[in-house]
Design a protein around this nucleic acid. Structure first.
Lengths: 196, 196
DNA sequence: TGTACATCAGTGAACGCGCGTTCACTGATGTAC
DNA sequence: TGTACATCAGTGAACGCGCGTTCACTGATGTAC
């Protein structure tokens, strides 16, 4: 081995991070390979030493960004128990801060629509991340509340994506607030039922 | 006037319908003007006799598709009252039939992600349609339930988009079912409260 | 320690292609007389 | 009713451009002796 063993790996990760940022900002179709490599401080030609084609990069970048998102999602919330934890995670997801953090936030809202037209691999990566999120939520809920876990994921993603798709900043906040309320009411209901 | 007065208008609507179908199937970026005009049975050059540019078409096509969606959404459900009506509309939105009806279904799931990167006009059109949907839902709910109307819109769109973004057909159905459950629980809760 | 060499991550010119847009034109339509 | 004409919706060649991808190359790295 002529170069330091992890030199190439480090470059690959730099490309992955750059692609993650660009995909969230401009979408998959809107991010050219030249722009991605430039964002990573490289020229476009070197791209194919790291990935077979653009779709392979997409799959890898989604996996990377989703695992980052997964590890950031609940930081500082670990002390909360059960239902409170779940509500806090959803509230944070549906916050104004997250609304504005397009480049560093969850990649799902920016990519979901395009993902449904994408090949098998990127969708598989996304699917696996969704299962992970569902399982994590379920692990904090009573068994009789497990049925809404995927719905919570859907509502969070839908609320953030919808809020980002409209102009009026007041209506944006109302979308976020209303989705938070919906989630709270839904969980409060199952809570009441299991308590009674 | 040399041609029948509404000849051009009819062609414009044919382009709008073709664009609506293509945008939902391939996205905004994935639908070329040549392909749209071909889908409408025309050649690409004539496009600019009807629209200034592609973004103007997008705004018009979204408006067209959303108003169609609005008039289809609740067909056959008019006899249901209040809460039952709202739940039925959401159930239909989150059905397997709608999941598969990409070209004829609601345009929001296919376009939301791209919309958040779009110019002012298309977002404004979309925003107005969302207000309309919210108002329609609110008109069927008790005033103390109005706070969740936008959340219902978000959850419906999120559930359908998420379901379409994954491969596993079983998990897809679970996403739809779980989102329907979330909505039901949320509305049941406020219903109990206003009843007690 | 010093030199000659092999490796290979990254460079940048070039490719074919489809994009959005322009424009000179064609030919069916409906009017005027 | 018949003919000459003006209109303008729609055609299709052409434009400049950026895309994804290929490939011959360069030059810094670390090895072998």
């Amino acid at each position: 081995m002529r170069y330091a063993p992890d030199h190439k790996q480090a470059t690959r990760e730099r490309i992955l991070e750059a692609a993650g940022r660009l995909f969230r900002r401009e979408g998959f179709g809107g991010s050219g390979i030249t722009a991605i490599m430039k964002e990573a401080g490289l020229t476009h030609g070197g791209f194919y030493a790291h990935f077979d084609d653009k779709e392979e990069l997409l799959a890898a970048a989604i996996a990377w960004a989703l695992s980052e998102e997964n590890s950031h999602r609940s930081v500082g919330l670990e002390h909360l128990g059960g239902l409170e934890y779940v509500i806090a995670v959803c509230d944070r997801y549906l916050s104004l801060e997250h609304l504005e953090a397009i480049e560093n936030g969850c990649p799902a809202p920016a990519l979901m629509s395009e993902l449904s037209r994408m090949g098998h691999k990127p969708r598989e990566v996304f699917e696996e991340a969704c299962r992970g999120w569902r399982d994590e939520i379920e692990s904090h809920l009573d068994p009789d509340q497990h049925a809404v876990a995927l719905g919570l994921v859907a509502a969070c993603m839908g609320g953030l994506t919808l809020a980002r798709s409209i102009n009026d900043t007041q209506l944006r906040e109302q979308v976020l607030a209303s989705t938070r309320t919906l989630i709270r009411q839904s969980l409060a209901d199952s809570n009441d039922r299991s308590a009674s």
